[in-house]
Computed example of a mutant assay.
Amino acid sequence: MNVIFDIDGTLVHSSNFDGACFTAAVRDVHGDVSIRSNWDSYTHVTDQGLIEQIAIENRLVDARVDDVKTRYVARVDAHLAHAPEDCIAVSGAQAMLQTLQPHHRLALATGGWRDVQKIKLAKAGIAADLPMFSSDGIAPRVAIMAACYAAIGDPETDTLYVGDGEWDMRACSELGWHFIGIGIRLKGKCEKWVEDFTCPSFFRYLEMIDNH
Rank of each mutant, 00 (worst) to 15 (best):
M208K: 10
M96H: 07
V29D: 01
K123Q: 15
R36T: 09
E85T: 13
K118P: 08
T46I: 09
L130P: 12
F22I: 04
T23W: 02
F179D: 01
R36E: 15
T99N: 10
Q98V: 10
N211F: 08
A24E: 13
M145Q: 12
E195S: 14
S41I: 02
H44S: 12
S173A: 14
I35R: 10
N211E: 15
P84L: 07
I180L: 03
H178R: 13
V65K: 10
G31H: 02
A78Q: 12
Y149V: 13
A81R: 11
E174Y: 06
F133V: 01
V33M: 05
L100T: 04
G137C: 08
K120N: 01
A55V: 07
D6P: 11
D129L: 04
G163L: 10
K192Q: 14
K120Q: 00
P84M: 05
D32P: 04
D28K: 11
C87W: 06
F197G: 05
D196C: 15
W177M: 09
A139W: 02
A83F: 14
P84H: 07
D40E: 11
S135D: 03
V90L: 00
I184S: 15
H44K: 11
N16W: 02
V116D: 00
A93T: 08
A109F: 03
A151F: 05
I144N: 11
V76G: 01
A55K: 07
R71V: 02
R105S: 05
I182W: 07
E191C: 03
A78F: 03
